[in-house]
């Protein structure tokens, strides 16, 4: 049986993707319940790139209407976990 990646692993991966888009950001200080776009000054191009990276990493479909669910670290982690069930 393939072990399910832990929630901690998922969060680490999400932070890594964010780090690629905003290399100068202090991700350790990120509030998991507040929008990335406000905390990291992501513009719509950055956010689109982030969504594409999530798609490529976790193999999840992300319709545009779901974008708001991916605006926080907790939101992203929840969506990734939900996609695995």
């Amino acid at each position: 049986m393939t072990p399910t990646p832990s929630d901690a692993d998922t969060r680490a991966q999400i932070l890594r993707l964010l780090g690629e888009i905003a290399p100068e950001a202090d991700l350790a200080a990120l509030n998991p319940d507040v929008s990335f776009r406000d905390q990291l000054d992501l513009d719509s191009m950055d956010f689109l790139n982030f969504v594409v990276a999530l798609h490529n990493t976790f193999h999840i479909e992300i319709p545009e209407s779901d974008y708001p669910k991916y605006l926080t670290l907790n939101g992203c982690a929840a969506q990734v976990a939900a996609s695995r069930t």
């Binding site: 719509s44 594409v52 545009e64």
Partner: peptide, 17 residues
């Protein structure tokens, strides 16, 4: 744009800009 992006995979979506 919403309709168009709904048809497009995430990698090909358009921005309003």
């Amino acid at each position: 744009l919403t309709a168009e992006n709904g048809r497009r995979p995430v990698t090909e979506r358009l921005l309003v800009s």
